[in-house]
Nucleic acid binder design. Structure first.
Lengths: 136, 136
DNA sequence: TGACCTAGTATCAAAAACATGACTAATGGA
DNA sequence: TCCATTAGTCATGTTTTTGATACTAGGTCA
């Protein structure tokens, strides 16, 4: 790891700053208490507002609206409002958000590897790595 | 994209919840205003506290301590205190944190692809994609 | 006429994250 | 004796994020 075969280790300093800045901005786009759940729902199929509200337990109307607007502003979801009464609004994931897939995959893969050797956060369970997770 | 060749699309529901939970936990570990900068410094070489404080402009003692403790608690940095006067404490990145590398790489790659087609956040610059970034 | 539906807003409260400045401990050197 | 040094802690304040509740619009249906 010290033979410097990584890409950004050889970047000039001004571009390192740039890299950190971009990284932070991208990170800000996917952090948010409900964004993960929202994208997870939308990656499977298109949802309308009320469906998301019911599909994500614990989220409030207000937060769902806020997070969706945020995702929309960052080009991660597409909002389509139909001029009907009662109103109908559909949310779907964009290609840009689908391109985030490798990020999610890598982070998930890492979490699997890391959490299996680390003590759990608060669940006093016995076995973590091999249990088939019979839901309680 | 709809032919379902992705891994977790076929996971049973209980493990989907698990996946989201793990994902969120992992995300929480790397989100924090200064964690990116801290890890960026530590990935290059081991630092002592004061060095980090000077290397990261804008961070306060308090926040640096807080973020470092958080990273340490999650097994991402290793803290070594030497029984000397004046005190000397060295921080270095762990293997677990080094394994995060693909996550960072993918997110950075995504940010490059995504931000080049999106309007910038607040910098009223002319060209974003091809400029060699002569630092201002 | 009035209750009902959906996808929101508006307002305020609570909690979490972040920032600021003062303070501490132990020791070597002036 | 007293000051400088390092890596913090402590108390407090501000900002950001999240939550709870009530309210709106406009057409349909009874």
């Amino acid at each position: 790891m010290t033979n410097g075969k990584t890409d950004d280790a050889e970047l000039p300093e001004c571009q390192q700053d740039r890299a950190i800045e971009d990284f932070h901005r991208a990170l800000g786009m996917i952090t948010g208490k409900w964004k993960g759940e929202i994208l997870w729902q939308l990656v499977q199929r298109k949802h309308r507002f009320g469906e998301l509200l019911r599909a994500i337990p614990g989220v409030t109307q207000h937060m769902l609206t806020t997070q969706l607007r945020d995702l929309e502003a960052n080009g991660l979801v597409k909002r389509t409002a139909f001029p009907e009464i009662p109103p109908r609004v559909e949310y779907e994931i964009t290609e840009a958000a689908r391109a985030l897939r490798p990020v999610y995959d890598e982070l998930f893969r890492w979490s699997q590897a890391h959490f299996s050797t680390l003590h759990p956060p608060s669940t006093p369970d016995s076995d973590e790595s091999a249990a088939p997770l019979t839901h309680p």
